[in-house]
Deep mutational scan, measured.
Amino acid sequence: QGDIVVALYPYDGIHPDDLSFKKGEKMKVLEEHGEWWKAKSLLTKKEGFIPSNYVAKLN
């Protein structure tokens, strides 16, 4: 089961498979690959890669 993270900063995706998000948006982490994680937005239901240093895990 994936962790839920919250965006600390907004992110505008650079690549087509990036997931753009707004500050405060919550996402479910699907896979962790070093600095880039695959996640699904709980708001938009879209999936893509996010920079892990832009988010914090919720406990």
Rank of each mutant, 00 (worst) to 15 (best):
W36N: 07
F21D: 00
G13R: 06
S41Q: 03
N59F: 11
K23V: 10
Y9N: 05
L42K: 03
L30D: 03
K38D: 02
H15N: 11
F21G: 00
E31S: 12
K23Q: 09
E47Y: 06
K46C: 10
I50T: 01
W36V: 11
T44E: 03
A56E: 12
L58P: 07
F49D: 04
D18R: 09
H33K: 11
K40S: 09
L30K: 04
Q1S: 12
G13T: 05
K45R: 12
P51A: 02
K38A: 05
P16I: 09
K40D: 01
G34W: 05
G2K: 10
P10A: 14
W37P: 05
L43G: 06
K45P: 02
K28G: 04
P10Q: 13
L19M: 06
I4T: 08
K46R: 11
I50L: 05
K26D: 02
G2N: 11
K46N: 09
I50R: 00
K45D: 14
D3A: 14
L43S: 11
K57S: 09
K38P: 03
Y54K: 07
G2T: 11
Y54E: 03
S52Y: 08
L19E: 00
F21P: 00
S41R: 01
M27H: 02
K22Y: 06
K23D: 05
D18T: 14
E32P: 07
V5F: 10
K57E: 06
G48N: 01
K57A: 09
W36M: 10
N59L: 12
A56C: 14
K38T: 06
V5A: 06
I14M: 11
K45V: 05
K40F: 12
E32V: 15
P51G: 02
H15G: 14
G24H: 07
S52W: 09
G2R: 09
V5D: 01
W36R: 15
V6E: 06
W36E: 04
L58S: 08
K28C: 12
K28F: 13
K57D: 06
K23N: 04
E32Y: 15
E31W: 09
G48S: 00
G48V: 00
K28H: 09
A39H: 00
F49N: 12
G13I: 03
E25F: 01
K38L: 15
V29T: 04
L30Q: 05
G48K: 03
K45T: 09
L19Q: 01
P10E: 11
V55C: 08
S41V: 03
Y11L: 03
D3Q: 14
V55E: 01
Y54F: 11
P16Q: 08
S52R: 15
E31Y: 09
M27F: 13
M27N: 00
K22G: 09
T44A: 03
D3W: 15
E47H: 07
Y9H: 08
K38H: 10
D3R: 13
A7K: 00
V55R: 00
M27Q: 01
D3V: 15
Y11P: 00
F21M: 04
L8R: 06
E47L: 07
K26M: 15
D17Y: 14
D12L: 12
L42S: 03
M27I: 05
D12E: 15
F21R: 00
F49V: 07
S41D: 03
G48C: 02
D17W: 15
H15R: 13
Y54L: 12
I14L: 11
K40E: 11
G24M: 03
N59C: 14
V55W: 02
V29A: 03
L8V: 07
V6I: 14
K26V: 14
E32L: 14
N53T: 13
E35V: 13
V6G: 02
A7S: 05
H15I: 05
L30T: 06
E32N: 12
K57V: 12
S52E: 05
K38N: 05
E25G: 00
S20L: 04
E25C: 04
I50D: 00
D17G: 15
Y11M: 03
S41G: 02
P16G: 08
L58T: 08
I4K: 03
G48Y: 01
L19D: 01
P10I: 05
S20Q: 06
I4M: 07
E25I: 00
S52T: 07
L42R: 02
K45A: 14
